[in-house]
């Protein structure tokens, strides 16, 4: 059985505790210093030019969560923000960077619906401050066979879910992307069913690796990467990580998901990274890390088997692809 494989993270990737503790201390000190500097700069900048104030405000305060981070070298901001799939802006990977300026990320609210004690709505700024932001350097594996390493900012989705107070009937959580063809011109085409919906089983959603993400490289998310708030699920193919989320819906039955609606035989509900289960049309055994020439082997659960394999024990991952 595949999921019994040992942890796929080579020991060389695990940062010694002493190193990350001292690094954390440094980060905290640096963050505090930066924060103070940012406040001072902010005030000065606000008076000087509104544009600069905006840029300064784009910086986020965070600490690095080394325990949940890979020590692999992150891809550059240029790579991450100019090459990605976000069909709301077009189907070419250069389209999001080109068209996402149309998105207005303020005002922005995120509503909670379904099997919860009380439905409510969060303002994005309120949501960002719900828990301390952490930087987590995650591997990202696209179902198409390419991968990157990205430094995201956010907190575990579980922090948020606890605040939502789901009832015992809530077995799944679905996340819904904004639907507004004026801001997201790709939605004027029928390439996918809009709005984009994705979802998780409750235990997956509560897993500490599941990140509610607000930033990248120390700043708020670029529009094209799913601003102002998105999911990051590093052990699943990229398309599971819904972007520009406006709604969380807690439900009893497994919710529909967009790519599964589009091609049920190719994209399942779980869509865990799995080199042993090929996409019907191409192999998932290897991947091309952006910036590298040779393909590299794809790891079970994208290298997070040690953390997440137990979620799927006893499940046939070939049937539940």
């Amino acid at each position: 059985m595949l999921i019994k494989k040992p942890a796929d993270i080579p020991s060389s990737e695990i940062t010694p505790q002493s190193a990350y503790v001292s690094r954390r201390k440094f980060m905290v000190t640096a963050a505090v210093a930066l924060g103070a500097a940012a406040v001072a700069c902010n005030k000065a900048a606000e008076m000087a030019s509104p544009q600069k104030a905006e840029a300064a405000a784009a910086k986020l305060q965070f600490t690095r969560n080394s325990a949940l981070s890979t020590s692999e070298k992150p891809n550059s901001l240029k790579e991450i923000s100019t090459y990605n799939n976000f069909y709301e802006y077009g189907t070419d990977k250069s389209d999001p960077a080109e068209n996402a300026w149309k998105l207005r990320t303020r005002p922005w609210t995120v509503s909670i619906e379904g099997e919860v004690k009380k439905p409510k709505t969060y303002d994005i700024d309120q949501l960002t401050k719900l828990a301390p932001l952490e930087e987590r350097i995650y591997r990202h594996r696209c179902v198409e066979g390419w991968s990157m390493v990205m430094p995201w900012l956010g907190y575990s989705l579980s922090n948020f879910i606890k605040q939502c107070e789901p009832t015992s009937k809530a077995k799944y959580v679905q996340f819904v992307t904004l639907q507004d063809p004026e801001q997201m011109p790709g939605q004027k085409t029928g390439v996918l069913d809009w709005p984009y919906v994705e979802g998780l089983r409750m235990d997956e959603a509560m897993h500490p690796l599941a990140l509610l993400c607000f930033g990248l490289y120390g700043e708020v998310l670029p529009n094209q990467n799913g601003a102002p708030v998105r999911m990051i699920l590093p052990w699943k193919y990229g398309f599971k990580s819904g972007k520009s989320i406006v709604k969380f819906r807690f439900v009893e039955k497994q919710p529909p998901t967009t790519w599964n609606i589009s091609a049920p035989s190719e994209y399942g509900f779980y869509s865990n990274v799995n080199p042993a289960v090929d996409h019907p049309r191409w192999s998932q055994k290897t991947e091309r890390r952006i910036g590298e020439f040779r393909r590299r082997d794809t790891l079970m659960f994208n290298g997070y088997a040690g953390q997440v394999a137990s979620l799927y024990s006893g499940m046939d991952l070939r049937a539940n692809y």
Partner: peptide, 9 residues
């Protein structure tokens, strides 16, 4: 036709 994901345009 067979290699594209969903956008067959």
């Amino acid at each position: 036709w067979w290699l594209v994901k969903s956008d067959i345009r």
